[in-house]
Every structure is written in C-alpha cells, then in structure tokens.
Design a protein around this nucleic acid. Sequence first.
RNA 1: CGGGGUGUAGCGCAGUUGGCUAGCGCGCAGCGUUCGGGACGCUGAGGUCGGAGGUUCAAGUCCUCUCACCCCGACCA
Length: 485
Amino acid sequence: MTEDRYVEDLADKDDFSQWYLDVIRKAQLAEDSPVRGCMIIRPYGYALWENIQRSLDDRIKATGHQNFYFPLFIPESFLQREAKHVEGFAPEVAWVTYGGGEELTERLAIRPTSETIIGHTYARWVQSYRDLPLLYNQWGNVVRWEKRTRPFLRTSEFLWQEGHTAHRTDEEAEAETMKILVDVYQDFIENELAIPVIVGQKTEAERFAGAARTYSLEAMMGDGKALQAGTSHNLGQNFAKSFEIMFQDVDGQRKYAWTTSWGASTRMIGGVIMVHGDDAGLQMPPRVAPIQVVIVPIWRKEHEREVVAAASLLLDAQLRHAGIRTHVDWREETPGFKYNDWELRGVPLRLEIGPRDVQNNQAVLVRRDMKPRAKEMVAQDQVAARAKVLLEEIQRNLFTRALEFRQSRTSRAETFAELEARMADRANLGFVEAWWCGDATCEAQIKAKTQATIRNIPLAQPGGEGACLYCERPATKWAIFAKAY
RNA sequence: CGGGGUGUAGCGCAGUUGGCUAGCGCGCAGCGUUCGGGACGCUGAGGUCGGAGGUUCAAGUCCUCUCACCCCGACCA
C-alpha cells in the first residue's frame, strides 16, 4: 500500500460530514451545480431515486391514491390565504417577479409545497359529500431557499412526492394521516430502504405550518443524529377554511372538509448513505439498488477472454431472467480495482467469473455487507437462485444492523443532567427517551441548552406516568430527544 | 446571517522575504507489458493560480471588494 492509494480513499468515518460528501462524489450519486445549494443528480444517484419512486408510488396507489400534477408557480395571494402557512414559509420562498422581460402584476412563488394551490382547486372539485374523499398525490420538485444546504439532506431544490387528500370527517382525515405514516412510509422505509424508524407525533414547535397535527418518521444516522425521513400532516379544517373547501353533507348542512398532506423526498437518499455506508463507501439496500449484482469477468489472454465472455453473457441472462438488476464490468482495469470501485458504489453482490471458474462450471459470489467479504463458490446454473437468497439476506442484515446500532445509541434519561451529558458526548451521540410534560417552554429551554430537539412523541408509549425531564412536573408521554439534520 | 478556515489542472496538494517558461502525485489519452483484492514503463494532453479592481519595473505571492466551499452556531414544514 503506497501513499498514493490514500488519494482515492474516503475521509475517515469519524469525520462523518466529510465522509458523507466524499461518498456522494466518489460513488457518483451527485455533484455540485453552478447554482448555490442545488445539486446535479448523476445517473447512478437518479437510478436510485427512480427505484425509490417506483416502489413508493406503488404503495401510494395500492392505498387508493391517484397521481396528478399542479404548476410549479403559485400566485402570491394564494400563499397569503393561510396565515400560519405564510408565516412558516415566507423566509424560504423564491419568487418570480419578471416574465418575458415584463414585471408581473402579481409575484409568483416557486412552490415550497403545494397545499395552497391545491386547496384552491379542491374548493371547486368538492360540492357534495359524494365527492369525498379526494385521494391524490403528485411527484415533483419544490424550492426552499435554505441558509445552509447539504447534498440530499437539504438542498434549495429537491424532488419529492406530496400527497393531498380531503375528507368528510376528522376521523377519516386522521385515519388517512396514519395510514400514510405507517402503512406507506414506515413500510417503505423499513422494508425497502432497510432503515428502522421511530414513528410519532411532532410537537407544536416542530409542526408543519398550518397543520393541526404533524407526524414524522425519525431515523438514526451513522453519527447518532436524527433524520426526519418523512412527514404526514392532518391539516384539520385550516386549509379548508382558508380556501373554502366546502361540501353539503348528508344532513343538508354545508361543512368544511378535513384535509391532509404528506411528503417524502430525495432526502431519503441521504438517509440511505448515512445509515448503511461504511469505511468502504456506500451500501445500497438490495431492493432499491440500481445494480444488484455486478459481474466482474477475469481474464489474461485473449482466448480466456472469449470463454469468460461467453460464460458472463449466460450468467447475466440468467440473473436478468430472475428479475435481478445486473451490470457486467468490461472496463480495462484490474479485478482488484473493480472490486473496490463497486464496493464504493455500494453494489450488494459481486459475481466473479474467471477461466478457472469456467473450467469448473462455477462462479464466485461476494457479499458487500460482510467484513471480511464472504465469498462463496456457486455452480453456474445455481447463480440466480443463490443470488436471490443472498440479496434478501443482505436486505435483512442491513436493517438488523441499523436497528442494533440505533438501540446501542438509544438511552433513557431521568434527569436533565443525563441528557446534557449525552448531547455533550459528540463522538457518541444518539437518541434519548425521556418524560416530557408537554410544555413548549421546557422544550425550548432544552433545545437552547443542549441543541437537542424533540424529534417526536412516539406512538409506542411505555404508559404510566413520570416526571418531566426538565421541570419535573408530572408527565404522561415520553419523547425522543436528539440532535437533528 | 454571525465566528473560524480553505480556494493553484478532473481529484489531492507544493509553491521561500513578490522575480525568469507555475510544479508534484493520482486521474486522463496513446503504445507496450500486466490482470483472482486498488499493476507498471514510456510518450503526451490538460492552468486566464475562484472572480473583479488596485499597488509595483514585476503579483499565485501584497491590498480592497466579491463569490464559492468546509467547520462551529443561528435558521431549517
């Protein structure tokens, strides 16, 4: 190992922030763009996003929703209609003031989210209780002028889906909010991205601007910090009242509808990187991996290349027929280089095939998730069957490992001093569970003193009663405290 | 937006108290030898030194402004 080798290496994982940026750049997921805070998502990163989209979209549709599309621009007057909403978003809205060289009579916001323009439209679409519920979703981009950006985690422009529904009753809206939270988001994030999440309700301070209740899914990153992986909002009648979304009910009365909205974004890619990545780079969860099995042919002489090529072709076809996403690496690099390169890019399984293997009618399968790498010989006609099994094992293993890590970094605190100590230990950050009285003052004080925020109030509660971590008054709920991205 | 730091080839860096044609490693192109865990040799290509202005006989180097990025904060449904 020479000094030069380090040039290609990643930053040490202890320098988590630099490591994160290195992985994104070297795995060719994304790169900086000429526009501040915006990134260029490269083909490999976009392929991951497309897999995420497809899988999440299937779940959204399976729960009875349809997709539609609304404009990128929102008239300023729309944004003004919901007081809390404007207040919350005003600082981060980008405006279009000129069109075709002429100053616009009304400024257009580049959507930071679409509740307003959709609410305005829903008011026309809803007349009767028979028109409800409206269960729609859109995939698109939004812009939020953030002060400090990070690739995938917080970019000025990002890609996401935003669902918008309208219902006849509060109960129905709440059921929708929870269905998306648990049946769609949690199911997707845990089963496809292999990221365990804590599902719970946001505090008033962290609530979506204009919502009655906000729920979130919180994941622990590799440095112990929290990442909000998705949110689901019960908007109550707030937007319905601002936009006159009314219907005539069975009893003949005209009533305001109950609406919800929910979203998940490219931020989840940041989560995948920070949860599963290791010293060797990225680790793609098999179910969303752009490439699930990379085939590395090995040869020296030209005649060897020919037999290996023939075998590779057959193995590739076999894997593809089994529904596995593959790539054959014919680059003129040494095998060792390719191994490291694909490990950096996070491909879960590698298939090596060389002259020796061809002769023995076998191939070598190597798992990315094992250290040291687990290699096994497989008969050529068994490759696809074995790969399928291994991919499932890797998928489970990534989830289990992430869950174990989260558990090892989660602790309970009875006193504020304990929380302070945990948050001061930079190298060993994590989640802290503690009783909280529900008072925003305690929450704010804790944040000011420790930088820890309440990520959410988990739906799964221990029950019983305790003393508030901060003020020691009686508390019936416990909250997850953590530093967050 | 506040405090600190960094901008020299795609990446990582070196460039003395201002001085001649701006260097090194990796990467890249061509040729040859290699090839089962990051190969090697030879020959090349690639730079308005982040940008603008200024001081000077002379600026990568000094001054002013500005932009971007990184770290720590504030902010962040």
